[in-house]
Structure formats: C-alpha cells, structure tokens
Amino acid sequence: MKALLIAFDPSELEPLARFGAALGAPFDVLLLTGSADDGYGASEMLLAGLATVPPADGLAKGIASVAEGYTHVAAAASMRSKDVMPRVAVLLDAGMVTDAIAVLDGKTFQRPIVAGSVIATVTVETERVALTVRTSAFDPATPTGSANKRSVALYCPTAVARTSAESQASGGRPDLTQAKVVVSGGRPLKDAGTFEKLIGGLADALGGGVGATRAAVDSGIAPNEAQVGQTGKIVAPELYIAAGVSGSTQHLAGMKDSKCIVAINTDGDAPIFEVADFGLVEDLYTAIPALMERLRP
C-alpha cells in the first residue's frame, strides 16, 4: 500500500497526515498550491506550484497523471475535493468513499449516510481506492520536520473558463472547517447586521469562525459559505456554540461531532439541547452580550 494525499493548499497538510497515519501505509503528498516545509510524515512532497486550482475536468487529469503506483488517492473533504475526486476515481478505475471517518483496514472504511443518522461500513472492491476524508475525525498529526521535496508539472487541460472568483471577506476569521471554536446562529438573529454583531462578535471574542443554519442563510442573514449541515460545511471544533439554532437533523449532521457543544435557545425543548453538553435556556440577545463581556480576552 502507498497513498497519495492531495493537499489543495498548505493548510491541509497536517489534517491529511492524520488520515495517512490512520491508514498505516507510507504516503506522499501532492501539494497543489503554495509551498511548505513540513510534510507531517510524508515520504515525499510533490510540489505542483499551481497559481490557482484548475477546474475539475483538468485537475482530475493532472492528479491522475501523477497517481500511478499509488493504491490510495485521498483528499480532505471539502467542496473543491468533492468536485474533482469522483472524476479522479473514474480515471483510475478506483472505488470511491466519500466523507470517510474511520479506517478499519486498507479496503474498509466507515462513513456517515442519511444526514449522519447511520454509519455505513463500506468495502472497496477495486484495486485502487479514492477517498474524501473528514480529517477532524482523526487524531492530530505531529510535525516531522523537513520533507523530501520534488517539483511536478501537472498538465490540467480544461474546457472550462473561470470568469470570476469571489471569496467572501472572512474578516480575518479562521476557516470554519479548521477553526477551534465555531459560533453559529439561526433565524432569530433577524438581520445580517444583528447576526454579524452578535454571532460575529462572540466568534471574534473567542478567536473562532462563524457558522449558520440553512434557514439563516436562506433568509439572507448569513453568507452561503457559513452554512453548517448535511449539505453545507461539516465542522468538529473543540467548542461549538449554537445560538438561536433549533437543531434540525440536517444541521446536527454538520456539527454533532464537535468536542463540546453549547446551546443557547429560549425554547428549552429544542432538539439542539439533546446534543448539547451545556444548554442555556435564555434569550440570545441577553446571553451573547453577557458571554462576550466575560470571554473577551
């Protein structure tokens, strides 16, 4: 067994190495953009040095072209990896596992299905395996110092033109899926200004990221990329604070593996309290300013 782990940028190196360690096989890393020194246990770091991530049709061909000789090709679960990895799987004739959360052996993995209501154990029948991995489900990797590095030229022919790309200003906040603290809000936040002031304010006081329910996103209170849930982002921070969030199955699917969950809601019977370590039945309009006051560094 030998794995090729696809890192879109250097921030994915440590999370991916967690999976490499769990697989228990030697692994190389293909770093698509940026550069880094520490490979977190990688035998070799292949540096593609791309300025931007190419569209999926081209990127899949580029990845497949350097995937010869590897039994496993894996990327951290994200929208960009889910865009490209199924195409890579076809090019390699590899069976594919989406959102792996556990490794039972080199061909057997666990993954959540039906909005996380069920954990499926899946075996891969093909010689090669493609995966996207929920890296937060695995133990942190330790730095191993400078890795062997080699440049690779990825040829990524695409029939797609990217005419614009916008990143919402995250206000210097950490990426949701990698933040140690996430503060999420729902519909009761009323409007975008209130959401930013209370949810954003508490997140800033804790150095955390901002999440939201689908309802908050749909009603324009919170930006799209803040949506946490089955069809949004999957997060598992050290601390998840849900304010004005009722706790639909779809939302819980995106956050119930958080280490410590705090729920603040005026409805003491809301389902969010069933997964919360600490529940506070109080109006978020009084509770959050009070929390900010006490938690501000």
Binding site: S117, V122, L291, R294
Partner: peptide, 30 residues
C-alpha cells in the same frame, strides 16, 4: 459494484449534557 456496504450502525451517542442556569455558570463550566 466498486464499493459494497457491509454494515450499517447507529452513530455513537453523545453522553447526556445538562442545562446551566446562567451565563456565569456556563462560563465556569467552559
């Protein structure tokens, strides 16, 4: 079939949490 589902299980349950009475109590627990 390139993949086969061999088993389906309930997800691990979280240990039951508790309600706190105030922001102060919440902060000391955290």
């Amino acid at each position: 079939l390139r993949t086969r589902t061999v088993r389906l299980d309930a997800p691990p349950t979280r240990p039951p949490g508790r309600k706190v009475g105030s922001v102060d109590e919440l902060v000391s627990e955290l």
